[in-house]
Computed example of a mutant assay.
Amino acid sequence: MNARPVAALGVALTTFLAVAALLTELLAARIAFSALVGLPIGIVAGVAAGIATWTRLWRAPRARPPLLGTAAFGYALLAAAAVSYAVPPARAVVSVGTAVPFATVCAVAAFLLARRYADRIA
């Protein structure tokens, strides 16, 4: 299975989400519209991480399980946000407090599966 594009896009997504959320939250006390600073910087960081994953990091077979685990975190957060948006009864259940642990479990599972079946990942 060629997981390189899956990993590159997922790492880019995870990096974007992490950098944008962290920077927006850190600047919230000083800047009224901190998302206007956090989102563009998150996009730049996500693109850089995706390109680095595609071009350099994927070449090392030992780096593939952590990259796939990181990618799974971003995909799981995106899936939780989609469920929260599309299914109105789920909005009471899906929050940051439930989505982040769910994404963490998905990331650990993806890491362990990628490490176990490393010979099948190209």
Score class of each variant (00 low, 15 high):
100 V>A: 11
100 V>M: 09
74 G>K: 03
13 L>S: 01
119 D>S: 14
86 A>K: 11
110 A>L: 06
50 G>E: 05
25 E>N: 10
101 P>D: 06
63 A>P: 04
43 I>W: 01
114 A>T: 04
50 G>S: 06
106 C>V: 05
44 V>H: 04
31 I>W: 14
30 R>C: 00
116 R>T: 15
72 A>N: 02
104 T>H: 02
49 A>M: 12
121 I>D: 04
120 R>F: 11
118 A>V: 10
55 T>H: 09
60 A>E: 11
33 F>S: 07
34 S>Q: 08
54 W>N: 09
46 G>T: 01
66 P>N: 10
42 G>F: 02
67 L>M: 12
29 A>P: 01
19 V>N: 02
54 W>M: 07
10 G>Q: 12
13 L>V: 04
119 D>T: 15
13 L>G: 00
53 T>P: 05
25 E>Q: 10
94 V>I: 15
19 V>K: 03
57 L>Y: 13
11 V>T: 14
116 R>G: 08
43 I>D: 00
12 A>F: 03
23 L>H: 08
2 N>C: 08
90 A>E: 08
36 L>H: 05
120 R>M: 07
62 R>L: 10
1 M>N: 10
17 L>A: 05
107 A>R: 06
52 A>K: 02
106 C>F: 03
36 L>C: 01
43 I>G: 01
96 V>F: 12
94 V>A: 01
119 D>H: 14
12 A>H: 02
7 A>V: 07
122 A>K: 11
59 R>T: 12
121 I>C: 08
10 G>Y: 14
47 V>R: 00
93 V>Y: 14
65 P>N: 11
115 R>C: 00
101 P>Y: 09
52 A>M: 06
86 A>T: 13
110 A>F: 07
14 T>N: 02
4 R>S: 08
37 V>D: 01
3 A>G: 12
69 G>K: 11
108 V>E: 00
45 A>C: 11
96 V>C: 00
65 P>K: 13
46 G>C: 05
69 G>I: 13
74 G>N: 03
29 A>C: 02
3 A>I: 08
96 V>G: 13
78 L>V: 13
64 R>A: 00
60 A>I: 11
27 L>A: 14
95 S>W: 03
61 P>D: 14
46 G>S: 06
109 A>I: 15
57 L>C: 06
11 V>Y: 05
16 F>G: 00
50 G>I: 03
93 V>A: 13
20 A>D: 09
84 S>R: 15
51 I>A: 06
114 A>M: 05
87 V>D: 03
114 A>G: 03
7 A>M: 07
77 L>W: 00
71 A>H: 04
62 R>M: 08
73 F>A: 08
48 A>D: 04
97 G>K: 03
36 L>R: 06
71 A>I: 07
113 L>W: 08
97 G>Q: 08
94 V>K: 04
99 A>F: 07
51 I>V: 15
26 L>T: 09
113 L>A: 12
20 A>I: 02
66 P>A: 10
5 P>N: 05
7 A>N: 03
31 I>S: 04
92 A>Y: 07
88 P>L: 13
55 T>I: 12
66 P>E: 09
